[in-house]
Computed example of a mutant assay.
Amino acid sequence: TSGLFDKKPELYKTEMCRNWQEMGQCRYAKKCCFAHGIKELRAVQRHVRYKTQICRTYHLTGTCLYGVRCTFIH
């Protein structure tokens, strides 16, 4: 797999693999860019202003397209 992690290697294994979480397996196995369990999960370096302001969209509409990846407070 490639894409985002080629451009932003600092994000490698910083989120849990959805397939691993939902089905307990992943077809990419060791090549997967997402974490398969807590032991593989890496900490992300966040900007000092990360989640310091309210997400206007979420508070106006009750939803946000970015979901958990939103950099604002929900």
Rank of each mutant, 00 (worst) to 15 (best):
Y66T: 02
H47L: 00
R69W: 09
Y58C: 09
I54S: 11
K8F: 13
C33W: 04
H47V: 00
E22C: 08
G3M: 15
G37K: 06
T57Y: 01
F34R: 07
Y50T: 03
T1C: 10
V48L: 06
R56F: 12
M23V: 10
C33I: 09
R49M: 06
Q21M: 14
W20C: 06
E15Q: 13
A29F: 01
D6R: 15
E10R: 07
I38L: 03
H47G: 00
P9K: 07
K8A: 08
R46S: 00
P9N: 04
A35C: 05
F72Q: 12
G67T: 14
F34P: 01
K8V: 10
L11K: 06
Q21T: 15
K7R: 15
R27C: 10
L60Y: 02
L11E: 04
H74D: 04
R27E: 07
R46T: 04
R49I: 01
I38R: 07
Q53N: 12
K31L: 13
E22Q: 08
A43S: 03
D6F: 12
G62D: 03
Y66N: 15
T63W: 14
Y66G: 03
F5A: 12
C55E: 12
Y66I: 01
C33K: 08
K13I: 02
E22H: 07
A35W: 08
T52E: 12
K51C: 10
K31V: 03
L65E: 13
F72E: 08
K51L: 13
E40R: 02
Y58E: 11
E40H: 01
C70F: 06
R18H: 04
L41G: 03
M23L: 11
A35Y: 05
R27K: 14
K39R: 07
R42C: 07
R42E: 13
R46D: 00
I54H: 01
T52G: 11
C55P: 08
R56D: 09
G62I: 09
Y12M: 12
Y28V: 00
Y28F: 02
R69M: 05
G3S: 14
F5V: 15
G3E: 14
I73C: 11
G62H: 05
G67A: 14
R27W: 10
I73Y: 14
G67D: 11
R56P: 02
C17N: 05
R49W: 03
C26L: 10
F5M: 15
I38F: 02
R69V: 04
Y12Q: 04
I73D: 14
I38S: 02
P9S: 04
T1I: 11
T61R: 03
N19E: 06
G67Q: 14
C17L: 09
H74V: 07
Q45E: 12
Y12F: 15
I38V: 06
Q45F: 00
G3D: 15
C26Y: 07
R69S: 14
K7Y: 12
E22P: 02
Q45G: 05
H74C: 03
G3I: 15
A35D: 07
Y66L: 15
H74L: 02
Y66S: 11
R27P: 11
C33S: 07
L65N: 11
M16H: 10
R49H: 05
P9A: 06
Y58M: 06
K30C: 00
G62A: 07
K13D: 06
I38W: 00
F72P: 01
T57K: 07
